[in-house]
Design a protein around this nucleic acid. Structure first.
Length: 355
DNA sequence: AATTCGTGGGG
DNA sequence: TCCCCAAGAAT
């Protein structure tokens, strides 16, 4: 037996009875597919029933105020799904005479319907041969065929779409697609897949190599780490204290201010009462001008929680690498964008800065 | 191509 | 508590 036959037989015996499958109507399938985008069946099911009861057909949906649709969607998340659903219903009423379009190319154009959803509707409702590749199918294909291309890049997705279409049963693409999805949802789970009851276990690449945990491959974007900066903007009359940043950290060789970096968000009082304050400000007659002005700055791979404290002193502070700069000369120094933004907003630049 | 959009469940 | 991530699409 080929893959399609194996999973088809398994599907017949093990499929869940999901309401929107029963009648195979395009409207019901459409609504269910939109609801289930990035949403678990258990979470979406009650919404499906409520939605169908309140908007039993395309015309009812199109005639309803969008706010009613949104209200029905309340709590589900991704609210543009609801807006697009409503928008698409009106398009179907106006351009397709209220009849759900039957061709993939036409379905695909409706707002809120991408490659996956168009293929799902075209195959499930109209029997067209388009492979529907969702998160479940990526997982099944990656493991069964041993595909190591990443599932979250453009080129990688093309590889999976090709593989899915190669495997597709063109006699019954609707059943094939549902069986693939169902297998991923019930057996080929992200963690702890139930390989011992999988209809594909005998010929599964990952199963032979014991590589279920390594597939599918996803290029991981380094999760942004958080850093907590407290800058001390120290002025002595007409002079500001700057510091050049070291190599080997963000903003190498650019200028900023004396800085206290902490692991977490610390109370200001704690920072200013400790050793740092003593070693930096002893004998300076320091006076805090303003407390914390807070900024959040997003870099490509980190989130900076930054606050600025303005301090006035009568004598120079002691801080490694610190330099004294007259306010009128500040504009000559290169700053990271965050610091520039602060300087501008605080009007610490006496002359407007050109960049 | 990389971001953004929500919420809930499980390890 | 934290992190992953789940029937994706639009920009």
């Amino acid at each position: 037996m080929n893959v399609s036959e194996l999973i088809g037989e398994w599907y017949d015996r093990n499929k869940r009875n999901l309401a929107w499958r029963e009648e195979g109507l395009p409207y019901q399938i459409w609504i269910s597919e939109i609801i289930l985008q990035q949403t678990r069946v258990n979470q979406g099911t009650p919404y499906y029933f409520r939605f169908i009861r309140q908007f039993p057909d395309i015309k009812t949906l199109a005639d309803a105020p969008v706010n009613e649709v949104l209200h029905c969607w309340q709590g589900l998340g991704y609210y543009t799904r609801a807006r697009n659903l409503h928008k698409a219903a009106r398009i179907i009423m106006e351009e397709y005479n209220g009849k759900f379009p039957e061709e993939y190319r036409v379905i695909r154009k409706l707002p809120g319907i991408g490659d996956y959803t168009a293929a799902a509707i075209a195959s499930l409702a109209f029997g067209e041969a388009w492979a529907a590749v969702d998160g479940n199918v990526y997982r099944v294909l990656a493991r069964y065929l041993g595909i190591t291309d990443p599932i979250n890049t453009g080129p990688g997705k093309k590889v999976f779409l090709q593989a899915a279409n190669d495997l597709l049963d063109r006699k019954d693409p609707g059943k094939h697609n549902q069986a693939m999805i169902e297998l991923g949802a019930l057996i080929c789970l992200p963690r702890n897949p139930a390989c011992d009851v999988c209809p594909l276990q005998a010929s599964c690449h990952a199963r032979q190599k014991n590589a279920m945990g390594d597939l599918p491959v996803k290029v991981k974007k380094p999760k942004p780490s958080h850093r907590y900066f407290t800058y001390l903007v120290v002025a002595m009359g007409d002079v500001i204290f700057l510091r050049q940043r070291a190599v080997g950290d963000i903003w190498a060789l650019l200028y900023d201010f004396p800085l206290i970096e902490t692991e977490t968000e610390e109370p200001i009082g704690k920072l200013l009462s400790g050793k740092f304050w003593e070693s930096t400000f002893t004998g300076c007659e320091a006076v805090i001008i303003s407390s914390a002005r807070e900024y959040r700055h997003i870099l490509s791979h980190r989130i900076l929680h930054t606050r600025f404290i303005r301090i006035e002193v009568r004598k120079p502070i002691s801080y490694p690498g610190v330099i004294q700069v007259k306010r009128t000369d500040i504009k000559a120094f290169p700053f990271p964008e965050l610091i520039s933004r602060y300087l501008k907003e605080e009007k610490l630049l006496t002359i407007s800065q050109q960049s």
